[in-house]
Design a protein around this nucleic acid. Structure first.
Lengths: 215, 215
DNA sequence: TTTGCTTTGTGATTTGAATCACCCAACTTG
DNA sequence: CAAGTTGGGTGATTCAAATCACAAAGCAAA
């Protein structure tokens, strides 16, 4: 099967509401692209000329500040797109976020001019863009709630739940240090909290692996 | 001058990029509405059937959690619209936020069905919607940065700067308790930090009033 | 299997912020 | 103007989280 056929299948299965004509246009205008696991797909400050439609894999979207602090905002999965890249592409602005592939990830890159054409041409595209904005706003608000209102143990539990859900597995491969970075705290705090959760029987700890049980 | 003439003037001056036809349609479909200072314009959980185009005044947009905690996300001023209400109206979802008028505020309420029609009909409307999303995302990210990365004194300083800018004045009328609520901390913390800032000559404190000097 | 790096565990200490306790000052309402 | 109400000041204490300090375990490569 050719690459074109593969991406055609992925487009149709992940974006079932797109009209036939829109699918064709995406295939014509878009560029199929692959990222390796852990590859940084987009850096903060980078200029964006296109948006990405997720076909396969999983992405983490991070916020970074100027001092090198980072934290996880949300995941993107197949059938979704990055609202921020849409918006920044449309306004020719630098990216305010960093995107990193969790697994091997395939996307369709769509140039911005084409995107705005489709808004008036395809009802399903308009609906998709609106839904993308809504979903990202929602996730961002949930992240904000957590940072603003919740204590570290609650935030860690939410973090693990989200990881489990996004990765469809109870086996999370990650170091305590990385979790600390993504929650913008220190490694010791995470280690201690995880230990407590292990003692409560919520999970099992191994080197670089957290096995979720009752989360 | 009639109400219609007033709102026509406000629309044209605050939304100079809107085409003539669009202005007419807004006037036909929209509803002119006034809110008193401190009036809650929209509650969390409320269902939204229209979005608001700001004509006059100033609005604060808050996030609330289920335990009654609140905090300030950003201000809305004339020429702007609430991205969240756009998105929620389009998806017939409950509002995730609370909006409160700072001063007497005039808005044009625009029903959602009309909005999506205009997307394809008026280029300027499409541009406006995109810009609205971009601006709100940006502000939300800045708020998130502050909560996630900054300490209380930095956050308070940013809070005052933003208030000064939004209200075009160095005289902020607000109690320490209200600031504490909007930053989701306690009154004592704010009082102490303000006192320190007064000692540094950054501001003067009076009952219910903060006079900004070197902020 | 020895060496070295990365990851994890854990005590001790410090710190920023929250909470408690209470008083005083400034308005405002009868 | 007296009494009550709301807003503000400030010490003492508690608490969650950050930081420091160091040991041990797990893994990889020489």
């Amino acid at each position: 099967m050719s690459t074109t056929q593969i991406s055609d299948n992925l487009l149709r299965s992940n974006y079932p509401l797109f009209e036939e004509g829109l699918i064709h246009e995406i295939e014509e205008a878009g560029e199929f692209k692959t990222f390796k696991a852990n590859e940084v797909m987009m850096r903060k400050g980078q200029f964006i000329r296109s948006t990405m439609l997720m076909l396969n894999g999983l992405i983490k979207i991070y916020r970074e500040d100027d001092d090198g602090n980072e934290f996880l905002m949300y995941y993107l999965k197949p059938g979704e797109a990055c609202a921020l890249s849409m918006v920044c592409a449309a306004k020719h602005e630098a990216s305010p976020i960093m995107a990193k592939a969790v697994n091997e990830t395939e996307v369709m890159m769509v140039p911005v001019d084409t995107m705005s054409e489709w808004m008036s041409k395809y009802k399903s595209w308009y609906q998709f863009v609106i839904e993308t904005y809504r979903a990202r706003f929602d996730e961002l608000l949930i992240t904000l709630d957590n940072v603003a209102f919740r204590s570290m143990d609650e935030r860690l539990e939410f973090y693990l739940k989200r990881a489990k859900e996004a990765q469809h597995t109870n086996t999370i491969e990650i170091s305590h240090q990385e979790i600390a970075n993504e929650l913008n705290t220190s490694r010791e705090v995470i280690s201690r909290l995880l230990k407590k959760m292990e003692q409560k029987g919520m999970l099992d700890l191994h080197r670089n692996v957290i096995e979720l049980k009752n989360i």
